[in-house]
Amino acid sequence: MADQLTEEQIAEFKEAFSLFDKDGDGTITTKELGTVMRSLGQNPTEAELQDMINEVDADGNGTIDFPEFLTMMARKMKDTDSEEEIREAFRVFDKDGNGYISAAELRHVMTNLGEKLTDEEVDEMIREADIDGDGQVNYEEFVQMMTAK
């Protein structure tokens, strides 16, 4: 299944994987998964984290390695993001709930994920998604960005 991913997608997933893999040992533990999910405003229980890991832990060693992570991402993409997942993601970014993602809100979430971005990089990300040019990202623009192939 992971063989249907483009090189660009694999590179993006590698970057995402390293955000989860806090200690850089090449595997994601339940603790690391929990840290990232909490930084995104989720509050999973230990059991939920274990279930999430077990779902993709092909070799049964209790952690997720990069090939397992790729399989999980490929699977998720095949079920292409349901509207509800996209709306949920939008809410994570839209901290003040005004229906727009500002540069400050984007920077806040990315920083929580451990991504240190310059102001230019954040502005560039907003510009790429900002179709109507108002300097922020509304829900429609967010959907376009998330579903762009």
Rank of each mutant, 00 (worst) to 15 (best):
V56Y: 01
I131Q: 06
E12D: 13
K78S: 13
S102G: 11
D21P: 15
A74G: 13
T63A: 10
E128C: 04
N61K: 07
Q50R: 14
A11Q: 05
S102W: 15
A58E: 14
D65W: 12
E32L: 06
I64W: 06
V56D: 02
G62N: 02
D23K: 15
S102V: 02
D23N: 13
V109C: 09
F20I: 11
T6E: 08
Q9Y: 13
D51R: 05
V92D: 04
D65P: 14
T30C: 01
E83T: 01
G60K: 15
E12C: 15
G62Q: 15
M110Q: 04
R75L: 15
V36L: 03
Q144S: 14
I126N: 08
S82C: 15
S102M: 05
A129L: 04
I10L: 11
T71I: 12
I28L: 10
K149S: 07
F93R: 04
I53E: 01
Q136M: 00
I86V: 11
A11G: 09
L113C: 11
E128D: 14
L113K: 04
D132T: 03
E120V: 11
E124C: 15
M110R: 02
E140K: 10
E85V: 08
V137E: 02
E48D: 14
L40T: 04
D123K: 06
I28H: 04
D23I: 02
N138I: 13
L117F: 06
T35G: 03
E55R: 14
F90H: 07
M72I: 11
G99R: 09
Q9W: 15
E15S: 14
D51L: 02
T27A: 12
K78W: 01
D21R: 09
F69I: 04
A129W: 04
A74L: 05
V143A: 12
E55D: 11
E83K: 10
R107F: 03
F69N: 03
G62W: 07
A129D: 00
E55H: 13
D57N: 12
E48C: 07
K22L: 04
I53L: 15
V36K: 00
D94S: 00
V56S: 05
E83Y: 04
E83V: 13
D96R: 02
Q144E: 15
T35H: 05
D59F: 12
K76V: 08
R75T: 03
T6F: 05
L106W: 13
D59H: 15
E68K: 12
D65G: 12
S39F: 00
A74F: 02
A47E: 14
F17N: 02
Q9H: 11
